[in-house]
Design a protein around this nucleic acid. Structure first.
Length: 507
RNA sequence: GCCAGGGUAGCUCAGUGGUAGAGCAGAGGACUCAUAAGCCUUUGGUCGGGAGUUCAAAUCUCCCCCUUGGCACCA
């Protein structure tokens, strides 16, 4: 396929202060599913994820453990890379903000903005807590008092560098109003516009080096390092600085970092640099754990890798995609995971594959026969497929992955019903020639149905998809546009040995 | 307080004007190729509350209640 359409998608980069949890895992899987889907539809995908390694918390964490910040980041990076591997994430690149390519790009850009007078030096006055080593906000006060944890709080003034954010406010409002699809889901646009009703201040982008050394020094003033905004956000473009990839098609982010960073700071930074804006922000919701907000203090942080280990990568990927509507919050519970695993994966899909392999072995010498009959049962089955074919493609394009999976499993159930209607075990006992053809057609139809299911499930369950594909003797490099149509390409294929895709497990 | 999301069967949710739906869970049944799986039948809801518009409202309008999240230099 010549002239492939490029598709550049990113996750947010994770902060190197803490271990991966369900939220990280979900975002990676969601982005991966989209990336894999776009590849299956023939697009040239570039998929970026990475790690945000600078900042005060990383510095403090390293001091506490008495190691170098970089060493600590290396440990965290290893953890996140393990997560990616265990979740079968197909990222094309992994950026770390301590990499030279990133730091150089950040410096180049800061210098340019400084030269253009879009960054200037001024003074910042605020309430500073020595104990917390940070400026506090009015809202940190409780009944007009600073809480005890902050210790002594004093008002201080210090020099800082500022980015001229405010002058772009009107431009941004107009942009957002004119580009309804910039933020998905659309309702989140209101939240941004609401934020922009208040006048923006210019953005403080530096910290004095004596207070924060673990960062990228300002190229025009080495006594300061730049702060998160001009560091972390730029990863999206620094990673592809030497490639023809920008702008990104989608930044996949959590709802917590939409306003202000991704919907306000980032577009304005790009505008100020004369760069194109990303085409869309895809904003996902949060997971609650058994009805409770996820938090370390409540002990509700689920380590997704525990479930991955026990139930398999694809089961986990399936669950998070099936359970959460993209953009909404959802609840995660072991019970619900177990129910979906058993009922949908093991009983509906796994058992279907199992009974198909068994019957093909028993009634057709492990070779997929020809489909020669087209009676009511077959007509109905193919109609079910065609309904699916028309809808699922668009659902995946529109991030309605939950609905798409729902439809695919409805089709899987219809395959199970088709088997009951045909009852191959009865046909096999019949002496009639017509029944012999019905039996052959039945096996061929199930195989074809499985091929199509495997293809559609590939973005969500790549390993399982590949196993099914292999066991029915279909090629492993199918394309969603060209090959997702009912046909007879499997006739004569050799079928694999019996297998259990999703073993029955105890919770 | 302001803004936004949500409030529909025990659970998770679909359903934007025309006789209330799906999956799971529960109950019953026939079958046996299969991971005691699958298939068929079935119980179950005054659609958060109230008022209004309409021949007709879960669906439109208004008011109220509950819930979740956001509200600027926090990463």
């Amino acid at each position: 396929m010549n002239n492939q359409e490029n598709f550049y998608i990113t996750t947010a980069i994770d902060y190197a202060n803490g271990s991966p949890h369900l939220g990280h895992a979900y975002e990676k899987v969601l982005t991966d599913v989209i990336a894999r889907h776009r590849r299956l539809t023939g697009r040239n995908v570039h998929f970026l994820t990475g790690l945000d390694e600078h900042g005060q918390k990383v510095q403090q964490g390293a001091e506490k453990e008495n190691i170098q910040p970089q060493a600590r980041c290396d440990l965290v990076a290893a953890e996140f890379l393990t997560l990616c591997r265990d979740l079968n994430i197909s990222n094309s690149d992994y950026i770390r903000t301590t990499q030279t390519r990133h730091k150089e790009y950040v410096c180049k850009l800061l210098q340019k903005l400084f030269n253009d007078d879009l960054i200037y030096k001024s003074e910042y006055t605020g309430y500073y807590s020595k104990r917390a080593e940070q400026f506090l906000q009015e809202k940190d006060q409780i009944e007009g008092e600073w809480p005890e944890i902050y210790g002594e709080v004093e008002e201080i003034t210090e020099e800082s560098y500022f980015f001229r954010l405010a002058q772009y406010q009107e431009w941004l409002i107009e942009f957002l109003e004119a580009h309804d699809s910039f933020i998905f889901p659309r309702f989140r646009k209101n939240q941004v516009l609401e934020f922009l009703k208040e006048p923006l201040n210019d953005l403080c982008i530096s910290r004095p080096i004596e207070r924060l050394s673990w960062g990228i020094p300002l190229p025009f003033d080495q006594k300061f390092v730049t702060y998160v905004w001009f560091d972390a956000l730029l990863n999206y473009i620094s990673a592809v600085a030497d490639q023809d990839k920008w702008p990104a098609d989608y930044h996949v982010i959590g709802k917590d970092i939409l306003v202000p960073p991704h919907a306000v700071y980032w577009p304005i930074i790009l505008k100020a640099c004369n760069k194109e804006l990303p085409k869309h922000l895809l904003v996902h919701g949060f997971w609650n754990i058994s009805g409770k907000k996820m938090s370390k203090s409540a002990g509700t942080v689920v380590n997704p890798l525990d479930l991955v280990q026990k139930f398999g990568t694809d089961s986990f990927r399936y669950f998070v995609m099936r359970e959460m509507r993209v953009g909404q919050d959802s609840d995660f519970s072991q019970d619900q995971f177990f129910i979906r695993y058993t009922s949908e994966l093991a009983n509906d899909l796994g058992n279907l594959v199992s009974r198909f392999l068994n019957m093909t072995s028993r009634y057709a010498d492990q070779i997929i026969p020809a489909s020669t009959v087209k009676e009511e049962a077959e007509v109905e089955l193919i109609q079910n497929w065609q309904k699916l074919e028309n809808e699922v493609f668009q659902q995946f394009e529109d991030f309605q992955i939950q609905e798409g999976l729902d439809q695919i499993f409805e089709f899987i159930r219809s395959l199970n019903r088709y088997i009951e209607t045909r009852a191959p075990w009865k046909l096999a006992k019949s002496e009639e020639t017509a029944d012999k053809y019905r039996l052959q057609t039945c096996l061929a139809s199930i195989a074809e149905g499985l091929r199509l299911c495997a293809l559609l499930l590939n973005p969500v369950m790549p390993k399982i998809s590949s196993e099914i594909t292999k066991s029915i003797g279909a090629p492993d490099n199918q394309n969603w546009i060209q090959d997702a149509h009912w046909g007879s390409s499997l006739e004569g294929s050799n079928v694999g040995e019996k297998m259990i895709l999703f073993p029955r497990l105890e919770l």
